[in-house]
Amino acid sequence: MATLSQSCLNLLFISAAMLAVIFSNSQAQDQSELSLDYYSKTCPTAESIVKTEMTCAVQNDPRNAAAILRLHFHDCFVQGCDGSVLLDDTYSLQGEKEASQNANSLIGFDIVDKIKNQLESECPGVVSCADLLAIAARDAVLLVGGPYWDVPVGRKDSTTASFSAADTDLPAVDHGLVTLISKFLAKGLSVTDMVALVGAHTIGKARCASFRDRIYGDFEITSGMELTSETYLSSLQSTCPRSGGDENTSPMDNITPNLFDNNFYRILLHGEGLLNSDQELYSSWLGFETASLVQKYALDPIAFFNQFSESMVKMGNITNPAGGEVRNNCRFVNS
């Protein structure tokens, strides 16, 4: 595999630097305002409330862990981690839920509502929806066997949303490696962060509409079509025919779909990644660095857990340039 050319990498880093300059000229919420003890006096039971509700949700359906983790990711990639992904459409505000990268993809909003109701009952007007989501994502991972990390809190909830940014900023299943890298760099996240964070696909499912092109495309080439690959592909094509069945789902990790582990990377090593964007990390001829990281995390689950925790904190510290409020209802801005 060849590595990215230096000129290509330079262009990507310059683009990310330009975005950083733009953000620095705005009235940004300072990341230094985030702290581990932000609610120690105003709502000391905040984390325990979130954990209790998340425990019930995951016990009811393990897929809820992936749902909340995905919500947090999709939130942070648009305007920063500000709860904007949770906003419903109103006559005066277009939310992000129906953007192409979110529609038919995001669930778990009812879980957020339940947690928020409990927090408002205990500590009215104190805990932001953005913080709720960041804490819940950590607990979701922990509840299905993943690592623990301390979550800095103190985020504000946005009073706006960006339908257009949800369409342009979020990675998509059909993106090539260079595009994927550029989208992460634009958020201040490195190639290492990207490969670790994509490991979240070790839990959760994808819709047939998202992986149809992959299983009727280059799956046979990347997998080498050994007997086990043929059996797996046959199963996928049964679930996802060439036409119809768009809403049918399949786990992105078909080995341990409800356990947060490193099997996702082992699947990529065998060329059997369900999503094109995932398999690109290992199979792209440009992916020397990403392929090495996939190999590393496939062999060393502790290294994956450590990097995933570090990268989740880093992503969670992306703040909204406009600041915001603490919403009373995560679906609507305060009146």
Rank of each mutant, 00 (worst) to 15 (best):
Q6K: 07
S7W: 04
L9C: 02
N10T: 14
F13T: 14
I14Y: 09
V21C: 02
A28T: 13
D30L: 10
Q31L: 08
E33D: 15
E33A: 14
D37P: 00
T42A: 08
S48Y: 02
I49E: 00
K51M: 04
K51Y: 03
F73I: 13
D75W: 05
C76K: 08
Q79W: 11
Q94F: 05
A99C: 03
Q101Y: 06
Q101L: 07
A103K: 14
N104V: 06
Q118H: 09
L119Q: 00
E122Q: 08
V126L: 01
R138S: 14
A140N: 00
V141C: 03
G146I: 11
D150W: 09
G154L: 07
S158R: 08
T159Y: 15
A161E: 02
F163I: 03
A166P: 02
T168Q: 12
V173L: 04
S182N: 13
K183S: 03
D193L: 08
D193E: 12
V198W: 10
G199P: 01
A200W: 04
T202H: 01
A209H: 14
A209R: 15
R212H: 06
D213Y: 09
I215T: 12
Y216N: 01
I221G: 03
G224I: 07
M225C: 06
E226T: 15
T228Y: 15
T231M: 12
Y232P: 01
L233E: 05
S235V: 13
G245Q: 10
D253P: 01
N254Q: 13
L259S: 08
N262Y: 06
N263S: 05
F264W: 06
F264V: 03
L269V: 02
S277K: 00
D278F: 10
Q279F: 07
S292A: 15
A298R: 07
I302L: 09
A303F: 09
E310K: 13
I318P: 02
G323Q: 08
N328W: 10
R331H: 12
N334T: 07
